[in-house]
Amino acid sequence: MWFITGASSGLGLEMVRLLAARGVPVCASGRRGPGDLPDDFPNIPYHACDLADPMAVTKLADWAMGQGPLRAVVLNAGAGFFRPLAQETPDAIARVLAINLDANIALAHRLCPVLSGGRLGLIGSVAHKGAAGMPVYAASKSALDGFGRALAEEWRGTVKLRVLHPGPVATGMATRAGRTPDFADRVFLPPRQTAAALLAALNAESGADRQTVSFLRVGLHRVLKGAA
């Protein structure tokens, strides 16, 4: 069984669609209630959970463990704002760090015993190198990168852990985050192909612990898959 967070939209949604289409057992979570899922959401177990609520995160981990033996977990949910620090609020700062970092630490901690022999993917962002337009989001993704870097080494030989950093993807997240769409949007990555490249990177036997999944990777994945 696979388990994917942030599956109600964007990359997570494309990942569960791909897995369900391949007949891979998968369960999913998102913040919105089941009634607000897209019409064509695959027929898979879904649990709504606000990852900013630590109690709800514990319940989510227990729910996921109850869905069957977990083979792979993708911690993909993420949130943030495209705005300078002065326009942030203490509550928003706390929420973004809770969702993008602390919830993932908590899920990895609680799921650890059942992950043995399996895989854990952490979805970061190229913003982890620093991003002037979104300092809090960038900080949360840098932190996730440092967390995954350390844990990949601690768990080597037991759990295959990878931190995957997508470049800008056309999921609408950037616009929802407050970024005004401009010419740059035309070079955003296509969500479905990016999701496929992320799954392939996580499934691969060999590969670096931390990888950037940007244009070159997504393009290469399309070409190679097309050829196969």
């Binding site: 620093g130 002037a132 960038a138 996730l144 440092g146 967390f147 844990l151 080494e153 601690e154």
Partner: peptide, 22 residues
């Protein structure tokens, strides 16, 4: 990297990313 201090490494990388962004 800092295996054996995963949350510490996370927090310090986070602070570094914050400084680079600012």
């Amino acid at each position: 990297g800092y295996p054996g201090a995963a949350s510490y490494a996370a927090s310090k990388d986070g602070l570094a990313g914050f400084a680079r962004s600012l």
